[in-house]
Write a protein that binds this DNA or RNA. Structure first.
Lengths: 330, 330
DNA sequence: ATGAAAGCGCTAACAA
DNA sequence: TTGTTAGCGCTTTCAT
């Protein structure tokens, strides 16, 4: 059933029906009523595919993140949803799982091509591929990078944030500060946070002890737990942990508790992300809080600007706010 | 740039290009090569809208849930994603926020999206509207209902699950068991869980004390915390809490800790959902674990069956497995 | 094995 | 104010 059916039932042309549907002016009240009755009678619904084919916009943007099960991304996704809604846009969620191929698939749009724009949180994609992706459609990248890709980036200042976290630990008199989240992709946020860690230590005249630098797979709770276990097993003394996200930190705390260690008395812990969970955990988590609302706001409005074509400045890096939230764990 | 351009560059008809694109037989090697070269040279990408208009399927299913920030839904969404991927389907996530109007919007598809099917977790929508929604496109409902709607439902046996939770508490010698999650929508899962609570109590010869029955807005941590605070304020003695989801339970524990109450020694707590968070919390959470993988599997395959039209049985309620996971909190 | 041409349902330029 | 009609880019039937 199509526009035509409605038109013939209402005794008007398709154009008129289209006008009614799109709420355009220049329709007499009587005609409008007749058309609306016909629509109701037929239970007619416009075919979005046809509309899309015609006007070339879908009303959908994609948000591609590594893992929706990580609360940070869930909270970010919720924020993006809220902003997108204001623009009458829906969000298609894509999980890359940190898998490079999957990420590439999403980026090149082999799969979900029915989108007007893309907000991508890349984990392993290389600059040239990101550029290619952005050339294909309006794109905003989440997460700071070293390299200078000509694509809009939105991120907190990870070096500064990492420094803030470690400075706080130092100010509490901790000197053997472990770090969880070392990453092979030096160019990403993790590399930058490590930089902040290193800088804060050296400010305090401390050297980086490689035994205190731990890596952690997918940044889930279990990874934080395992890393902490390795640290404990190694016998290296430590009195604090800076985890590169809150779930790692929560996993670390779980492990410390299992070994009868008190947080923060024996070991102070600082996380990163300020997820809801950390506000209710025992102990409550001290963390770096990025402004997720601001990130979402910026990402979506930037995308909308590009979509509407009323953005003529060149791609840039937007640095969003962050702050240290001191709670109980450090 | 379209198929036509590719065709003329390759010196063939659009039909041939289409054949190559869709990997159909009956193409000579030479022709295929020439077409592929033309595609590469032009950097051509098929327009999915056109394809969609023609064949009427989008390769996208929507998952409409109240709130992605609730870990249960995030985990469920991840599971749905994984299953959908096997069918080469992408998942569009829609948040209803438990808002009735928003839910209706999603259900009726007013925001007519390019969607082949819908998995909906309704909170407040009425039977007739759900039916209407299902009539419109293949639909699977998540969460048990009392009423007998002719739509596929997938849910754990909430009455049995609620009973299991409370029986466990009783077996631990608790007799003043509070309940958090009372809901005005008696027909939904919450109402059924309460039924299980009531049944288990009466099995044990106990009466329901209305002072122990607490309601809780959106099932977030803060709601659990507030409900527990009210309970404490009321002065009603209690030695256990059955929270209708894990986040409520975690919020309750946070509140108990704040008041110097030990879990489970002073108050035992059982949750519902078995979210990852509860496996790492302090104390670890005892909970009812629905089989999320099974739920996702069933929901998606059911949808796929309807989409392919090779499902001719009538809509039904699928009861999925659940089990009690005893950890530290009770 | 390949080509010509008719739509899929909608919008919008142009006509009346 | 309303109608006519030409596409949007693809798939597909029917010819060749």
């Amino acid at each position: 059933m199509s526009l035509k059916d409605v038109a013939s039932l209402a005794g008007v042309s398709t154009k008129t029906v289209s006008n009614v549907l799109n709420d355009r002016p220049h329709i007499s009240a009587g005609t409008r009523r007749r058309v609306e009755e016909a629509i109701a009678e037929l239970g007619y619904r416009p075919n979005p595919a046809a509309r899309l084919l015609k006007q070339g916009r879908t009303g959908v943007i994609a948000l591609a993140i590594p893992d929706i099960e990580l609360p940070y991304f869930a909270e970010l996704a919720a924020a993006v949803h809220r902003v997108a809604e204001r623009f009458d846009y829906t969000v298609l969620l894509d999980q890359t799982g940190g898998d490079e191929d999957k990420e590439r698939l999403v980026a090149t749009g082999f799969r979900a091509h029915l989108i007007d724009g893309l907000i991508l949180s890349p984990l392993s994609l290389q600059p040239e591929e990101l550029l290619d992706c952005a050339a294909r459609r309006p794109t905003v990248l989440l997460g700071e990078r070293f390299y200078d890709v000509q694509v809009d980036h939105i991120a907190v200042d990870n070096v500064a944030a990492g420094r803030d976290a470690v400075r706080h630990l130092l100010s509490r008199g901790r000197e053997r500060i472990a770090m969880i989240g070392e990453d092979e992709f030096y160019a990403g946020p993790a590399g930058l946070r490590k930089r902040g860690y290193v800088e804060a230590l050296s400010e305090a005249g401390l050297d980086v002890d490689d035994d205190l630098v731990l890596s952690a797979g997918l940044f889930q709770r279990i990874d934080g737990m395992r890393a902490t276990q390795r640290l404990l097993d190694s016998g290296t003394p430590f009195d604090a942990i800076f985890a590169f996200n809150d779930t790692l930190a929560l996993g670390a705390i779980r492990c410390l508790h299992d070994h009868g260690l008190a947080v923060p008395d024996d070991v102070a812990v600082v996380g990163f992300d300020d997820v809801e969970e950390g506000r209710f955990s025992t102990p409550r988590l001290t963390t770096i809080a990025p402004d997720k609302e601001q990130i979402a706001e910026l990402a979506v409005t930037r995308l909308m600007g590009r979509l509407r074509g009323d953005l003529d400045d060149s791609p840039q890096l937007f640095s969003t706010a962050h702050r240290l939230v001191v709670r109980e764990s450090a």
